[in-house]
Design a binder for these strands. Structure first.
Lengths: 203, 203
DNA sequence: CCAAGAACTAGAACCAGTTACAGTTCTGCG
DNA sequence: CGCAGAACTGTAACTGGTTCTAGTTCTTGG
């Protein structure tokens, strides 16, 4: 176990001791606190280590790098989000509207914290293998979240295609928002527009 | 004119002397050469400067940073691509197929140079204002390229919505590809799938 | 032609991510 | 208990993007 990021890998299979899990949590919490105020650039590894009361080298044993740390934070966040969205059924008369409702709800938390969102989304666009694993987690969570909006009898192959396409639009719109290409309103509108384009024909 | 990137801004309105335009070209060419072999990390500003026979400080007068340099390279590249795609009408019986044909053609060049594509796409996900301007250029070019696939009498509002949605899917699929989330084949398939989802209803 | 000022150059300096290392503490097992 | 090995700590070094500076060269209005 000498590879960087190895501990984080172990975290996926609950192989950590209590104190290790606590360290990991403190690191993620510290990163999110710093990102909350100053975004990506404000998350400095030395600061994270100090704030989490961890040695810098240890931080790198847990996460393969800054992007991995932030991506892990996003993965945690989205899983939390999934739990919260699941408790309330989506509003809306059509599948398209329900889907939009769900996606908007899932995105609301991000809208409230632009700096944090920008930081974690930016970290996601990176080819580090550990980051890709987090990206998969996020992607799977979004897949499950969207699945809740479809009626039981909806053709499952079509559903899968739609969900994947909307996942792309969601991600791209989010990137566009955090990088300032478009406002949050336009981003939401384009997501809704895409959902209607693909789903209104099934009403 | 003391701001970094000011010269690049001037380039947009052809305010450069011959030797300045040449410097800019050499810089972009050097960056592309380096990216071609080793991707994003291999593009080191000191190397670019040396290879382009420009002082490092001058490079920063032309481009606000590494990401801006690479984004400008992408913008040049896509405009070149647009010219090449425009000369030949799209193949395919339906609008969806023609659109897919066009998008695949536009993406083919990128498929051939994964390292370069990864580098420029990665540079695009960045909130530097100068980079955003390049992103707009790219986005507009993609918009025009896609427009060529629609028949004259297609409802223009719907067309706009579809093109925007497909632009998102295209970008996201590309990011997924360059970061290794999906293979190039899946990326192309998902783009085609989305095009059909939105367009087959209009046949 | 001749300043004055903008642009360019070479090189050092600065900063933050990352790595390396020597010493200390924890953990599990015989 | 006692030890071997892994994990952790603190700190220094390394790297590459970015900035700064002093000196030189181009450009241009008078």
């Amino acid at each position: 176990m000498a590879d960087p990021g190895a501990v984080e890998a172990a975290a996926r299979s609950d192989q950590l001791t209590k104190s290790q899990a606590a360290r990991r949590e403190r690191a993620i919490a510290a990163a999110m606190e710093l990102a909350l105020e100053g975004g990506y650039d404000a998350v400095q590894m030395r600061d994270v280590a100090q704030r989490a009361d961890i040695a810098l080298g240890t931080l790198y044993r847990y996460f393969s790098g800054k992007d991995h740390l932030l991506a892990a934070a996003l993965a945690d966040w989205v899983e939390e989000l999934e739990r919260r969205v699941a408790v309330r059924p989506p509003r809306g008369d059509t599948t398209a509207e329900q889907l939009v409702d769900i996606l908007r709800r899932a995105t609301r938390a991000m809208e409230k914290e632009p700096e944090l969102s920008g930081a974690v989304i930016r970290a996601l666009s990176c080819d580090d293998p550990q980051v890709i694993a987090c990206q998969q987690d996020v992607s799977n969570a979004m897949f499950r979240i969207q699945g809740q909006a479809f009626p039981e009898d909806f053709d499952s192959a079509t559903r899968e295609r739609i969900v994947r396409a909307l996942g792309h639009v969601w991600f791209s719109a989010l990137v566009g928002w955090v990088n300032g290409w478009v406002g949050i309103t336009e981003a939401g509108d384009e997501l809704a527009s895409a959902a209607h384009l693909m789903l209104d024909q099934y009403n």
